[in-house]
Design a protein around this nucleic acid. Structure first.
Lengths: 138, 138
DNA sequence: ATTTCTGCAAAACCTTTGCAAGCCG
DNA sequence: CGGCTTGCAAAGGTTTTGCAGAAAT
């Protein structure tokens, strides 16, 4: 019934310690969908461990992302970033140092030109992040 | 020598008022490249208008993004967002309400499989945001 | 003249950090 | 035990807001 065994294995694979908080955090996240914020995850975990602190949730989300157990929606830079390049282009984003480098659209090859992809969503443009390791970080 | 005339036209097109702060902000940004944060932009503008306030910079960046004069690197959600879907997939992001919906990888057609794109960048994966207007916001 | 914008200061968020007590291996 | 983790509280960083005076149309 529980997911405790797989979680212990996951921790072993990634070399992280098993604590009660991490187990419950992981189980709760398995039961969520969409793209929750740390606060939303905290609110849910708090129902199972009322004494848990938000700092613990942050620390463990960070650990999970770092070790590859969890993924974030788009690499998080702490503050908003503005685009100074008016040309159509995409990005090379380094998953270690989080640097962003522009690449022009033609480097990627064609993306589908359909204007409608799903249930009435009207496409304006594509934004492609190529995520990987930059030359400096290798 | 100055960019004042094009900026006045731009404002007219987008229906926003021309102020000295906006003009200088726009000119300064034209001279930057990369993906600066509001703080970095503020630091530069301050060299030309020492009395400008950070709040003004934030308000005008927001206005420029809203009216289409400027673009942000990736749509900014205020807080980190975690991915609960372990499958390979991409996103439909609404530029009005900022909702995020998953679409699976096959909906997009193939992306190039090259492992190296530029000067030693090692590709891990692609993250594609299809930006547009969702059904609800139309 | 009216509406909108600026600068300031305070507030509201979001996230990280330091530390004493407790848990894991 | 020894080291890592937790919860708390405080600090740090980013962004928004309210308001009185100034500027724009």
């Amino acid at each position: 019934m529980t997911l405790i065994k797989p979680f212990r294995e996951l921790c072993a694979e990634h070399g992280i310690a098993v604590t009660h908080q991490r187990q419950v955090l992981y189980e709760v996240m398995q039961g969520m969908d969409g793209h929750p914020s740390p606060e939303e995850i905290y609110a849910r975990v708090k129902r199972k461990i009322p004494s848990i602190s938000l700092a613990t949730v942050y620390k463990n989300i960070h650990l999970f992302v770092e070790s590859g157990v969890l993924r974030e929606v788009s690499l998080h830079h702490g503050s908003q970033r503005l685009e100074m390049n008016a040309e159509e282009h995409h990005h090379l984003v380094c998953s270690k140092c989080k640097s962003i480098e522009d690449i022009d659209e033609s480097s990627l090859g064609a993306l589908p030109k359909r204007r409608k992809l799903a249930d009435g969503f009207l496409v304006e443009r594509y934004s492609v992040d190529v995520i990987g390791i930059c030359a400096k970080c290798q």
